[in-house]
Nucleic acid binder design. Structure first.
Lengths: 338, 338
DNA sequence: TTGTAAGCGTTATCAC
DNA sequence: GTGATAACGCTTACAA
């Protein structure tokens, strides 16, 4: 179990070096010796230590990945895609959940660096993550941003075309007949929120409607945040006919508040959001969404990271933007009453 | 970025040892020296290498986790819970997706061992995983099984009471009025499938109904497997009025096949399965399920593993069984027609 | 309070 | 074809 090269060498009657050659498939070992060594390895259940070899090669074969929460149906496929791509390139993934907490994110980053991950794939908490990452980016440490950009940080990244996605989604709501559309989103701290707000505004202005700041409800983009924001929406003087939630968890919270207030979707209020939940639509094709190809985005991001690690990337930061697609279901229909 | 203790020592005008003391917060360093060293650390962006310290301490602070697929809504929370618990104990998680592939699982296990993870938390592919794990269990390497047991492998484990869960779910279907209930499950290779079959059978016999082997449809427990099995169910001579799918993905496949055949749930066919999808029910409370407390189970499993790693566990294998709960929604109602 | 020497398990280098 | 030696970056044990 904890045998070393030397134990194997002793048992096989050779030197540690020869064992090392066999392990790494290097030439220059006679077939007979090789067999004796392989027998000794099997006998001792010997597993070479990557800890020791990493120390010499300065390569751990480890990649750090930080997401807010793997159990979020958007990030699950993201982690899955990244891991698959990493594995195929011979890397293992150290997974961290930042819980959208800047301090926890910072702790993870420094820990991962200490573990000598060869690169970092991260869906950052927000613009403030710049504090946590800036020095490494400046030091040319391989980092790729996923889903969210960081203002003022020039770095490889993979995101969705959030502006146009939001524009499409809101344009759809307008086409259906909605005129007052609430947007439930976060503070100005996260790039996705900012971009989706821009798209929301564009769709409204494209349609010749007035952009009303009071229809933008800022909150935390989790279930509780969506819940609270929806209550504010319902309390608004002139109630909107539709709510656009900035992401999936926020939409869940919105739905929860609506249900509690006995408001039926879409009969009393329409609802649409970002992020489709894979497979869910089969069970219940209800929610109109703008779907992000999460797994593909993540694979692309890992690819960028692998290139950076491999040194085949060039100095300039690269940006990949995916289009995504609008999926219209029943939740966005025009209310029958009200 | 890649400074070493010696670089820091040189810059601070001390020995490497003194730097090491400062890093590890050991006593015996004058305040003045400490400050000089801390300044040097900051100046050089020095991050101590866990690769090197792991080599000495024989502790990596790494735990391996293998699940079939993190993007599965059952395993997402499982990974999340494990990571949170591991982090609080100072461990990082190396995440692997076995894709329910025995060979891939084997590869992951040996790789993780080479990386010197201090323990392994695994939702194994099935009974055959015994080949992949047996030697390590025999060698007292810390391993905890999650969700699935392995026949003939005596090892710490956390599972659900699958027999009673399935019994409750099927008893509910019977109480609603169903008499012919199809069970879509895997081959005999996975403990959860076996146990749920036992529960299915018990509920049927408890109700004084005949157990009909032809109502048990064996397939792969993924979406495609559920899809194919449902087609067989529909082709059955005497069509059942309800389908019990062994897990979430299988249920999705069943639903897909039913929809394609223009069969409405529950009006033409009832459906129930294991695994609730968190949050989904808020959006659309449709599917009757037997819910497993995935995150809690996972936290408990990680706790067992941490105890084993810490040596506070004792030789005997421990088993923790969670109860879970039946959640009745609309999909299990008695068909109106047929 | 601080430093020196040795070694953790590998492998690169060079010698035989 | 094979082996001795040193080194990767750190820490334990001991010395000063």
């Amino acid at each position: 179990m904890t045998a070393t090269v030397r134990d194997v060498a002793r048992l096989a009657g050779v030197s540690a070096m020869t064992v090392s050659r066999v392990i790494n498939g290097q030439p220059g070992v006679s077939a007979e010796t090789r067999q004796r060594i392989e027998a000794a390895i099997a006998e001792l259940d010997y597993a070479p230590s990557k800890v020791a070899s990493s120390l010499i090669s300065q390569k751990t074969g480890l990649i750090g990945m930080i997401v807010p929460d793997v159990s979020n149906p958007f990030f699950g496929p993201i982690v899955r895609g990244a891991e698959t791509t990493a594995r195929r390139a011979g890397f293992k993934l150290l997974l961290c959940n930042s819980e959208s907490d800047l301090r926890l994110e910072r702790e993870y980053v420094t820990d991962l660096i200490s573990h000598r991950v060869e690169g970092l794939l991260i869906a950052p908490v927000g613009d403030s993550s710049r504090q946590n990452l800036g020095r490494y980016v400046a030091g040319n440490f391989p980092i790729v941003l996923l889903d969210r950009l960081i203002a003022g940080l020039d770095c490889d990244s993979v995101t969705l075309d959030n502006i146009d996605g939001a524009r499409q989604l809101v344009a759809h709501l307008i086409a259906v007949g909605h005129r007052r559309i609430a947007f439930v989103t976060d503070a100005d701290e996260v790039s996705t929120g900012r971009q989706r707000l821009a798209g929301y505004r564009k769709a409204i202005e494209d349609a010749g409607l007035p952009f009303d700041e009071d229809l933008v409800f800022h909150t935390t983009t989790d279930q509780m945040g969506g819940y609270r924001a929806a209550q504010q929406v319902l309390a608004a003087a002139e109630r909107p006919s539709a709510i656009f939630a900035v992401n999936n968890m926020t939409a869940v919270g919105v739905m929860q508040a609506l249900r509690q207030a006995n408001i039926t979707v879409p009969d009393d209020m329409a609802l649409a959001c970002f992020d489709d939940v894979q497979h869910l639509a089969v069970i219940s094709p209800f929610l109109t969404v703008f779907d992000q190809p999460a797994e593909d985005m993540s694979k692309a991001a890992m690819q960028l990271l692998l290139e950076r690690i491999g040194g085949t990337a060039g100095k300039q930061a690269r940006t990949v933007t995916f289009p995504g697609k609008l999926i219209v279901r029943v939740s966005s229909a025009l209310p029958k009453r009200g």
